[in-house]
Amino acid sequence: MNSMLFSRQRTVLPGFKLTLGFTIFYLCLIVLIPLSAIFTKTSTLTWAQFHEVATSPVAMASYRLTFGASFGAALVNAVFGLIVAWVLVRYNFFGKRLLDALVDLPFALPTAVAGITLARLYAENGWIGHLLSRAGIKVANTQMGIFVALTFIGLPFIVRTIQPVLEDLDAEVEEAAASLGANRWQIFWRVIFPMLTPALLTGIAMAFARALGEYGSVIFIAGNIPLKTVITPVLIMGELDMFSYAKATALAVVLLVISFVLLLVINLLQWWSSRHHEHL
């Protein structure tokens, strides 16, 4: 069957050429051709022009903010996501199934709804915002707000990548460790945590990748103050509103290349994690 594409085709199941042909056609039409437009558009800029747009002070400020907030959010989610996954897999308590289902809310809730909701909650007169403002903390229209929004949308990635691994962990491994004299904390750090690491890193990378490109849930809470709370997607949007397509495209290329690198990292992590799993 390996040589099927190139040799005389006879298979029992029909439709190979038809379905593969349609798959490739549709993929090219919807994804690959439009995506290549971004690179041809960039090529209308000289390198100097591209460099100027891609490394302008506003652009650099937006990268720093986007990366920083995305990374911070991913780390916070790593800690809380691990706790949430652990609790949902290991313990039984009232309302567990409801909480488990709700973890996917950030996937299911449209980003615009999440955006305005978080913006109102954390506004200075909002439910949470007025409590925090008494303590002198401002969230809405600050970088803190962006961080909050990105934490919201990143949560399910970590929980959902760790959960299945935790469910598949062999109880015998823990029992073996216990019989060898390890206490609970040692068992967690020396036995369980190393086994979760590949999944945890994958989850972090996925949450980080999602946060980098996020738009809808951030714009309402961020306030979009130039050089302070403008993330890269908002910057691209601003260039588009002024019809400066070339500038918008140059920034988009930066974002896109980073996304591809992250995609590669995630694939490598998953490959590593599946290998890790086999060796058990």
């Binding site: 069957m1 971004i38 996020e214 996304s259």
Partner: peptide, 27 residues
């Protein structure tokens, strides 16, 4: 079916997930 380039095809199908929505509109 089996054919060469299958893994690449699967990766390409997943591609839109890793692209910022703003960039998706822009293209």
């Amino acid at each position: 079916f089996n054919f060469p380039g299958k893994t690449l095809l699967i990766t390409l199908i997943d591609l839109p997930f890793s692209i910022s929505p703003v960039v998706s509109g822009l293209i």
